[in-house]
Amino acid sequence: MQTVTVAIADTNPGRRTKLEQCLRNGQGIEVLTNVMVNGNHMTLSHQSELHASVAAVEDIIARISRFKPRILFIHLDPSDDANFTLLDALRHRCPETFVVLLTDKSIPEEHILEALANGARGYLSHEADPFYFLKAVRVVDSGEIWATRKMLGKIMDRVLH
């Protein structure tokens, strides 16, 4: 089994540690902990506070370009409904890295849909069973997407109408 490199961008240390531990239990998964240095684990929300500054996005792009994780988990904050600049930039400039969003119940489906439309390859809840995080890594690594059938229905509705 080929090793899949994974990085996590989440400002919440508790959630981040939990996910890191979960991923380390998966065979063939290497968690890169030094991608976001100085505790500066950027999230989309953090980016919004910085007014999606070009410099901040450039910083993340530079880090991702250097470490080249195959999968990048990003915490999606519901308070940010505008900043998909980072996702778009990652898709264009780091095409070898696939973004998977970390969500919770407070995030509207439309917001997740918008993030997928801007280049994220999947999403799953922080509360999901560890089994699904490991499976999502494998599925997204293979080029497929990780989304519920309900979300796929919404995507199709948007594509067709």
Partner: peptide, 11 residues
């Protein structure tokens, strides 16, 4: 499903 997402992204 990737085709579906790809179409949404292009759109």
């Amino acid at each position: 499903s990737w085709r579906l997402l790809n179409e949404l992204v292009i759109m």
